[in-house]
Simulated assay, not measured.
Amino acid sequence: MTSARQLYLYIVKNITVYPQKEAQAIAFMLLEHYMRLRNIDVLVDRPIPENSTQPDWDGIIKRLNNNEPVQHIIGSTEFCGLEFRVSSAVLIPRPETEELVQMVTRDYAEPDKNISILDIGTGSGCIAIVLARFLPHVSVHAWDVSDEALAVAKENARQLIADVTFAKQDMLDVTFPLPGNIVQFDCLVSNPPYVTYSEAESMRPNVLRFEPHEALFVEDSDPLLFYKAIADFGVHHLKQHGKCYVEINEHFGAETKQVFEERNYKKVEILRDINGKDRFVRAIWA
Score class of each variant (00 low, 15 high):
Ser3Asp: 13
Arg5Met: 12
Leu7Asp: 11
Ile11Trp: 08
Lys13Trp: 07
Tyr18Thr: 12
Ala25Trp: 02
Phe28Lys: 11
Glu32Ser: 14
His33Val: 12
Val42Lys: 05
Val44Thr: 11
Pro47Ile: 02
Ile48Gln: 11
Thr53His: 15
Pro55Thr: 12
Asp58Lys: 07
Asp58Gln: 12
Asp58Phe: 01
Ile61Thr: 09
Asn65Trp: 10
Asn65Val: 03
Asn66Ala: 15
Ser76Gly: 06
Ser76Ile: 04
Ser76Phe: 03
Cys80Ser: 10
Val86Tyr: 06
Ile92Ser: 07
Pro93Cys: 01
Pro95Phe: 08
Pro95Lys: 04
Glu96Ser: 08
Glu99Asp: 14
Met103Lys: 12
Met103Ser: 09
Leu118Val: 00
Leu118Cys: 03
Ser124Ile: 10
Ala128Ile: 05
Ile129Arg: 11
Phe134Trp: 11
His137Pro: 00
Ser139Arg: 12
His141Tyr: 13
Asp147Cys: 06
Ala157Ser: 06
Gln159Val: 06
Phe166Ile: 09
Met171Phe: 13
Val174Lys: 02
Thr175Trp: 09
Pro179Gly: 14
Gly180Met: 07
Leu188Asp: 01
Pro193Asn: 00
Ser198Glu: 01
Arg204Ala: 15
Pro212Gln: 02
Ala215Cys: 06
Leu216Gly: 00
Ile230Ser: 00
Asp232Phe: 00
His237Arg: 02
Gln240Trp: 10
Gln240Gly: 04
Cys244Ser: 12
Ile248Glu: 06
Glu250Phe: 14
His251Cys: 14
Phe252Glu: 05
Glu255Ala: 12
Lys257Cys: 13
Val259Asp: 14
Glu261Pro: 12
Glu261Gly: 10
Glu261Arg: 11
Glu262Gln: 15
Arg263Thr: 14
Glu269Val: 10
Asp278Ser: 15
Phe280Arg: 14
Ala283Glu: 14
Ile284Leu: 13
